[in-house]
Simulated scan of single mutants.
Amino acid sequence: MTSLDVIDRLNLIIETERVSRDVLSQKTGISYTRWTNALQRKAKLRHEEIEAVGNAWPEYMLWLAYGKELPEAGQISPMTKKSMGDLGTQRKAE
C-alpha cells in the first residue's frame, strides 16, 4: 500500500465526515478559497490549517499530521472510524 500524503489524508477526512468546503471553512475558520487551493495542490498546506482540522476533528489529529494511529488514546484514521462504526464500537476522542 502506498503512503498517503497530508492532502490525501485531509481528503479522506472530508469524505468520511461528509463535509463540503463551506463546512470545512466554517469549522476551521480558514477561507473556502484557501481550502480550494490547498486541496487542489495549488498551494502548500500550512501548519495552521493542519492544526485547525485537528481541532475540528480531534480524533484524527495524529493521523492527519503523521499518518499514525494511537487508538488507545482516541487517535484514529477515518478508515478505523468507519470500521469501528460498522462494528458498533466507535468511541469519542477526548
Results as ranks from 00 to 15, higher is better:
56 A>R: 05
30 I>D: 09
42 K>S: 15
80 T>A: 05
40 Q>F: 12
34 R>N: 14
78 P>L: 09
84 M>T: 01
81 K>W: 12
32 Y>E: 12
43 A>H: 12
64 L>H: 09
77 S>D: 12
56 A>Q: 09
75 Q>I: 00
32 Y>H: 13
59 E>Q: 06
69 E>S: 14
34 R>E: 15
46 R>Q: 12
48 E>Q: 05
81 K>S: 01
38 A>T: 15
55 N>P: 07
41 R>L: 11
75 Q>Y: 11
33 T>I: 08
76 I>P: 04
57 W>R: 11
71 P>D: 15
63 W>V: 01
78 P>G: 11
72 E>W: 06
35 W>H: 10
66 Y>A: 04
55 N>S: 13
64 L>T: 01
63 W>K: 03
65 A>V: 11
42 K>P: 08
53 V>N: 14
70 L>I: 14
61 M>G: 10
63 W>D: 10
76 I>F: 06
73 A>E: 15
82 K>G: 12
31 S>V: 01
71 P>I: 02
35 W>A: 11
69 E>G: 06
50 I>E: 08
74 G>P: 02
61 M>S: 14
43 A>I: 08
46 R>V: 14
49 E>H: 07
73 A>D: 13
67 G>V: 00
83 S>H: 05
67 G>K: 06
57 W>K: 06
50 I>R: 02
45 L>E: 14
73 A>V: 06
53 V>T: 09
43 A>Q: 13
57 W>V: 06
36 T>L: 03
59 E>Y: 11
76 I>G: 04
38 A>H: 02
30 I>V: 09
41 R>Y: 05
61 M>H: 04
34 R>G: 14
69 E>K: 12
77 S>E: 12
82 K>N: 13
37 N>F: 10
53 V>Q: 11
64 L>K: 13
65 A>M: 12
50 I>W: 00
74 G>Q: 00
33 T>Y: 02
46 R>G: 10
70 L>F: 08
83 S>K: 13
33 T>K: 02
38 A>L: 07
63 W>G: 07
54 G>F: 00
66 Y>I: 05
59 E>A: 14
34 R>P: 06
80 T>H: 04
59 E>H: 07
40 Q>E: 13
81 K>N: 06
48 E>F: 03
42 K>D: 15
70 L>M: 15
48 E>R: 00
38 A>F: 01
46 R>S: 12
44 K>Q: 12
34 R>L: 09
57 W>H: 09
57 W>P: 03
41 R>E: 15
36 T>M: 05
38 A>K: 04
30 I>G: 11
48 E>L: 01
41 R>Q: 15
74 G>K: 00
66 Y>G: 03
70 L>E: 13
39 L>Y: 07
32 Y>C: 05
67 G>D: 12
54 G>V: 07
58 P>W: 03
35 W>Q: 00
62 L>F: 08
67 G>A: 02
80 T>V: 03
53 V>A: 15
33 T>A: 01
67 G>E: 13
45 L>C: 10
83 S>N: 11
32 Y>G: 03
79 M>W: 10
84 M>I: 04
71 P>C: 05
71 P>Q: 11
64 L>I: 04
34 R>H: 14
82 K>M: 14
52 A>T: 09
68 K>G: 02
60 Y>P: 04
31 S>F: 05
